[in-house]
Amino acid sequence: MSAAPGGHRLAEMTTVEAEHAVTASPLVLVPAGAFEQHGPGLPLATDLVRAESVVQRVADRLRGRAVIGPSLPVGVSPHHLAFAGTISLSTTVFRALVREYLDGLYRHGWRKVLVITGHGGNNAALTTIAQDLLADLPDLEFAWTPLTPLAGDIVAGMATSEVHGHSGEAETAQMLHLAPELVRDDRLAPGTTELSELDGLARLARRPGHPVTQVRYDRLSAGGVLGDPCTARPEDGAAIVAAIVDRVTDYAEEWLKV
């Protein structure tokens, strides 16, 4: 059978090609993102752009042993709702949507699914899905991973602010590497960069080694940015993305041997 015109993308295959792919490409990669504010310099779809870019690179590296499933473009983002443009799913709806995706893939024969999420707000829901699947579909092998935390050692070597994260140095660097045309360089501006800028619960929420507290981002930063994106460099973004792709690909290759 000739290769599908869409390469690894399930959406661009015909139903006949999809039936063949169940056996030839037993792993499905699902990009998950969010539709939320990323400060004045980055687009609302930043998390999806990063996830889809990594998924494409991993699929290329796996050379036909994985297909790219449908994206999850909107995530769990209630902490960003004070900022214009943000659209959020409840955890209940997000979990239901992921399960519908998984049930559909399972029905047609896929038994290995990896969700790659660019948005940390999706993490808790993905964890509960994984737990439920152990009882509901025990023969479905389900995994998920965030992006930037996989390259924590690379980020640690960057010049970052005391407070950094959302729309900050590391995330902006990735976008400068992956989609520089979407970055409004002239609008990049520092957000909250030091713990001393925070007070009350917001300060507690950012302290490491303490109980987890959810705080709205308008309490953490007036502009929705943690860190200083003005110092972001595309070469740092390239190093972060390369590390993520290497580590996800290594995992997938080992998984495909099981």
Score class of each variant (00 low, 15 high):
R207A: 14
G200E: 04
D47K: 09
A179L: 00
V16T: 14
A156L: 03
R206F: 13
V245I: 03
I129Q: 05
H108M: 03
E17I: 07
P73Q: 03
G75F: 05
A243Q: 14
G64K: 06
L114R: 07
V241D: 07
S161P: 06
S167N: 06
T160W: 02
L114V: 09
L105W: 01
A189E: 11
A151R: 07
E17H: 07
H164Y: 15
L114H: 10
H166F: 08
P234N: 03
P146A: 14
V248S: 11
G33C: 11
A222M: 08
D103L: 01
S161L: 04
L133W: 11
E100T: 05
G200P: 09
T213W: 15
L147V: 07
E169M: 01
R95H: 14
K112C: 05
P208Q: 14
V22D: 02
L256V: 04
G64C: 05
E254V: 10
Y217R: 11
L102C: 03
A21S: 13
N123G: 15
V74Y: 06
D60F: 00
S88L: 06
G33S: 12
E194F: 11
L137A: 13
D246S: 11
G75A: 06
T193M: 13
A96L: 06
P70T: 00
S2I: 04
M1P: 08
E36C: 00
A170W: 06
V54A: 07
A45F: 03
V58K: 01
R206L: 15
L48F: 02
V163A: 11
V113K: 01
A66F: 10
V74R: 04
A238H: 06
G104Y: 00
E181H: 10
D199R: 13
R107N: 05
A84M: 09
A18M: 10
M1C: 02
V54Q: 09
P211A: 12
R219P: 05
V49T: 07
A239W: 03
L220D: 02
Q174D: 04
G200A: 06
D60C: 00
F35E: 11
R107G: 01
G109E: 07
G223W: 00
D103A: 09
G168R: 10
L150I: 14
P73S: 01
D218P: 09
L134H: 13
L140I: 05
T23P: 00
V98N: 12
A143H: 15
G224I: 11
G223N: 15
L137F: 12
G104D: 12
A24E: 15
H119W: 12
P78C: 04
P211T: 12
D199W: 08
E17V: 05
R61S: 14
H166A: 04
D199N: 14
R219N: 13
D47N: 14
P146D: 10
E169Q: 12
E171W: 08
G41M: 05
D199T: 15
L198V: 08
D60R: 06
N123K: 12
A130D: 13
A243V: 10
Y251W: 15
R57Y: 04
F35N: 12
V245F: 08
A82E: 14
V16E: 15
I129M: 02
S2M: 00
L133E: 03
R216S: 15
W144M: 09
Q56S: 10
I87C: 11
V113W: 01
V67P: 09
V212W: 15
R63P: 00
V163P: 13
D136S: 14
E36R: 02
V28D: 08
N122A: 11
L114N: 09
